[in-house]
Design a protein around this nucleic acid. Structure first.
Lengths: 172, 172
DNA sequence: ATACTCATGTAAGCTGTTACATGATTCT
DNA sequence: AGAATCATGTAACAGCTTACATGAGTAT
């Protein structure tokens, strides 16, 4: 049985020490979300499925009267995670960028509107950079994968911002 | 009634002179697909919905005994397309990159495996570049939006390839 | 008191992919 | 004759988002 896309993140996050659905979501939101998002509506049902499938084990561990369920990997879960990480399958790569789509169809737009569109694209990517910077120190301290992907994000969105600037100069 | 994501592409493609579902799919596959894909399973049903909604008009126009339905924009469709292109709403931007996800979780991998992973990421982006190059002349001839987005794609994927090379050097 | 954070979940709906089915025409 | 291309569609399923619902603890 192959792991669903969300299952992979969950296994890896649990392996990483994030033991509750809530904690996983918190970390996703400040780390992977720009290349791999996840919502509660997906996380909680999937945790159940993984437990039913015997890949993780949950234990109720309320903090005070607040319910809380912590998960850990079973041997099967550990093996599944390993298999995924080492597998040589073509990794999925998808993107949907409405800004570029509009740009593609911008022939009927005036220069001013095309310029506004590009500025908007740039602002979007700049805001991602701004957010990434807020977690830069933490990622640097952790090093390894998280730091590499953060640097990738900074560089990638930085490149887009520069591209936009060049286009703006040519148009303005 | 707001346009569905696929509806936008269809209206714009029809406005652009692509009159059948088949033709639209052909053009998508060599142009927008790297930032906005579409499958037949989405295109044909959506064309019907758009016709029911009065945004496009279809006419049977078989070529020989081969059935074929050509569409054109109604005034309402033209207005809807214009509204979308000029609207200042936050454009959707989504991406899912399993390669980066693995990289994020690569702390338990050895250097050799991390290197293999990065090579794989690079190969993926290189293959996109190779494909884009095959349509470069056509896009240059058309100019405007298609040419801009193609240049964007070339630059963007080129940046990723260079980033990968730098990482490979550091690891190898 | 009130708002915010911790914490878990469900239901409806939207969007999309994949695989399948069909049939005509054109190219080799 | 057989393969590729033109052309249209459906059904099943997968995956995700959004909005909603609930409730306890903590900070202002």
């Amino acid at each position: 049985m192959p792991l669903s896309p969300t299952a992979r993140v969950l296994l890896a996050m649990i392996h990483n020490g994030r033991r509750t659905g809530y904690e996983i979501k918190q970390l996703v939101d400040v780390s992977t979300r720009f290349f791999w998002a996840a919502s509660y509506g997906q996380i909680y049902p999937e945790l159940k499925r993984l437990e039913d499938a015997g890949l993780i084990e949950g234990e109720d561990s309320p903090s005070g009267g607040r319910r809380r369920r912590v998960y850990s990997l079973t041997d099967a879960g550990d093996a599944a995670l390993d298999e995924w990480l080492h597998s040589d399958d073509e990794p999925t790569y998808e993107m949907r960028d409405e800004g570029l789509l509009k740009l593609f169809f911008s022939s009927d737009l005036g220069d001013a509107e095309r310029l506004a569109l590009i500025r908007r694209i740039r602002a979007r990517h700049q805001s991602v950079i701004d957010r990434l910077r807020t977690v830069e120190e933490g990622a640097a301290a952790v090093g390894g994968g998280p730091h590499m992907t953060l640097q990738f994000g900074l560089g990638h969105h930085g490149w887009v911002v520069e591209w936009c600037k060049r286009q703006e100069e040519e148009l303005g």
